[in-house]
Design a protein around this nucleic acid. Structure first.
Length: 265
DNA sequence: ATGACGTCTTTCAGACGA
């Protein structure tokens, strides 16, 4: 089973890119972020025509997350991250798909730091860490996938010194990520490629794509049982070079089929 | 320190992104 995450940066403006990538990559499950569209403007017709069922949590202009499932409808288990009833931003949606609980998230950017936006990022991170602990307690296969807006280590940044004070790389944010992962999750891309420079985002500015000046900020966190099934993980880099591309490229993992538990025959 | 570029908006300028 192939599961992907893709920050599309506008699901309607990006629809041709999304549909082309779905046809070429044929993922079984897709987590989308930055829909930048309210619920009623999610392009469900085109996505169904491409062979995918979907659930989505939209918002006008900004944010917005969705889960797509090939030839099936995701069973929604949650929309919105718990822990703050006043948080109106659409950044979390979760579903049961093919025997796995999939949480799709878009963690706040947090710039400029310090400031209220950075405080919101750290608070959101705390809520995620608390909620994720409960997910592990469920003892079912769980995957958290999405745009975490964090480069975990120097290896994940083309020029670490330049990003030192940025909300995506500040020590508080990196330690928040490591504290979350340290509770029992596996960073799938890094687990399979411990020494490789892997990027999932290239700025539109300064010819970042042409210079390969990238960041690794889109991640898959696997629960312990799921980590045992991890067979492959990579980034569809070429998509970043397409016409009208998102500033993110899709990342994906491949999970090996297990025995009777998830076998469908 | 700023802005480069791109997307969205009851648009033609401003907010936001990373």
């Amino acid at each position: 089973m192939k599961i992907a995450t893709f920050n599309v940066n506008g699901v309607n403006g990006r629809l041709p890119v999304l549909l082309r990538w779905l046809a070429e990559a044929a993922p079984d499950v897709v987590c989308l972020q930055e829909l930048k569209a309210p619920d009623e403007r999610f392009p469900i017709g085109a996505i169904e025509k491409a062979g995918y069922g979907a659930i989505w949590h939209g918002q006008k202009s900004w944010n917005g997350v969705a889960i797509l499932c090939r030839e099936a409808d995701p069973i929604e288990t949650r929309r919105g991250l718990p822990g703050d009833p006043d948080d109106a931003q659409s950044r979390y949606i979760e579903a049961a798909v093919n025997g796995i609980l999939v949480g799709c998230l878009y963690l706040p950017n947090g710039n400029p730091a310090p400031g209220p936006k950075f405080d919101y990022k750290l608070a959101w991170f705390r809520r995620l860490t608390a909620y994720a602990a409960g997910l592990l307690d469920l003892k079912v296969p769980v995957l958290l996938a999405g745009d975490f807006n964090v480069m975990p280590t120097d290896l994940d940044v083309y020029n670490p010194a330049r990003w030192q004070d940025d909300a995506l790389f500040r020590p508080e944010v990196r330690s928040a990520f490591h504290a979350l992962v340290g509770r029992g999750w596996t960073d799938a891309l890094r687990a399979l490629h411990p020494d490789e420079r892997i990027y999932t985002f290239w700025d539109y500015f300064r010819n970042a794509w042409g210079r390969d000046a990238g960041l690794r900020i889109d991640h898959f966190l696997l629960s312990p049982a799921l980590a045992l099934q991890l067979a492959a993980a990579d980034v569809d880099r070429a998509v970043r070079g397409w016409d009208k591309a998102s500033d993110h490229a899709p990342a994906w993992i491949e999970l090996a089929e297990t025995g009777p538990k998830t076998g469908r025959r």
